[in-house]
Design a protein around this nucleic acid. Structure first.
Lengths: 204, 204
DNA sequence: CCCGAGTGAGAACGATCGTTCTCACTTGAG
DNA sequence: CTCAAGTGAGAACGATCGTTCTCACTCGGG
């Protein structure tokens, strides 16, 4: 077992602890116990707690992007890919330990004091935003639609976390369908909305 | 100057400090300095830091509700009241020290460990939700519209906080207009959309 | 005046945090 | 084998936290 394996073990344990309890609520001793590693090796892998936190967030960025991409790839059409975002969220919200978006949580807890963490959270959101904008451009809708869909996804995450109700993803999907179809109807006014309506009926 | 004045002074100072730096990042000593009060009196007003935090959140609940109500009352129609939410957010986002929704931040930082704070944050969101649902019922739209509009407002708050871009409120308003008008067109299909369209043009 | 209750300023306390150090032990090279 | 380098387990350190205590002082009622 080499250093990279140990790093990944620490990151996995830290991610779970930080996400479920908050960053400042989890000390290095607790992380050592959870990762099954000595404090000495922990500090030679990560010179400070802040390095653990940033590594955890960078790791989570990749996991989140991969998970989302997986859902999107399963959808055949650009419209379906956009709506797959909310299916991805729906499944996520149903997980037992769901506690909101880890980046929003990190920003809320540490963003004001630690600009590096604020930057990581911001970069995560902006890459999601770019992803949405690309798909919106593909279906030929106005760029503002990407903002609208992003707001729904963000709102669903915080609402599901606070209320504990996973149906926020379902509501976000409903609204997204309306916004997408309205945007498409505005850009292609000659085609009637029949296709969109049947598509909507199949999923909703 | 009686005890209530002191209490209010502490709450005001604590609110600013907690909101801009986070809860665990602000100690009681710092709060004492900011409030201009002795540690002794501080602890006889609030037996523990947790009491300060909950008092701050309860206070912020009232301030938030009053501010929103003010914006809503200025709008003549129920539709205008619903859209006033996003004007309220827009002005809020432009404040210098805006750092997202204080309740989401509190939930993110302390909600996992402190169930009392989680409950306050949840209650705040649900009272906002009820407020929206009442107005949606007034304009005769489907209840799901209230969920959609709430998601937009929530998403705007986190997006504006993370990206630092106040235009999230503007985008949320755009999307809200589309969703409201679509919902109204579905509930009253005999009236054409002209009224809604001109209203939209006046505001957007 | 006296006296007791309450106050401000801040030291002190115990807990906990992030981080480093100690020390006995392992291990691979010579 | 010997020895140097690295490790695990955990004590130790300094800082900081929330909270309490000390002590000199104020001040209103007798």
């Amino acid at each position: 077992m080499d250093n990279d394996d140990y790093r990944q073990r620490v990151i996995a344990a830290a991610d779970r602890l930080y996400y479920t309890k908050g960053f400042s609520a989890v000390g290095m001793d607790q992380l050592r116990d959870a990762a099954g590693i000595s404090l000495r090796r922990l500090y030679q892998l990560f010179p400070s707690k802040n390095d653990v936190v940033t590594a955890v967030l960078q790791n989570r960025r990749k996991i989140w992007a991969d998970g989302l991409t997986e859902y999107m790839d399963a959808a055949p059409t650009p419209r379906g890919k956009l709506l797959a975002v909310y299916d991805f969220l729906a499944d996520w919200f149903c997980e037992d330990d769901f506690r909101g978006c880890g980046f929003i949580n990190a920003f809320a807890e540490l963003g004001a004091v630690n600009s590096e963490i604020a930057a990581i959270a911001r970069e995560h959101k902006m890459s999601f935003q770019r992803h949405m904008a690309r798909l919106v451009a593909e279906i030929g809708a106005a760029p503002s639609l990407a903002h609208h869909l992003m707001l729904l996804a963000e709102g669903a995450q915080t609402t599901a976390a606070l209320t504990g109700d996973p149906s926020a993803a379902h509501h976000a999907r409903q609204a997204a369908e309306i916004l997408i179809d309205t945007a498409l109807a505005k850009e292609h006014p000659n085609t009637n909305g029949e296709d969109a309506e049947t598509h909507l009926a199949n999923h909703g």
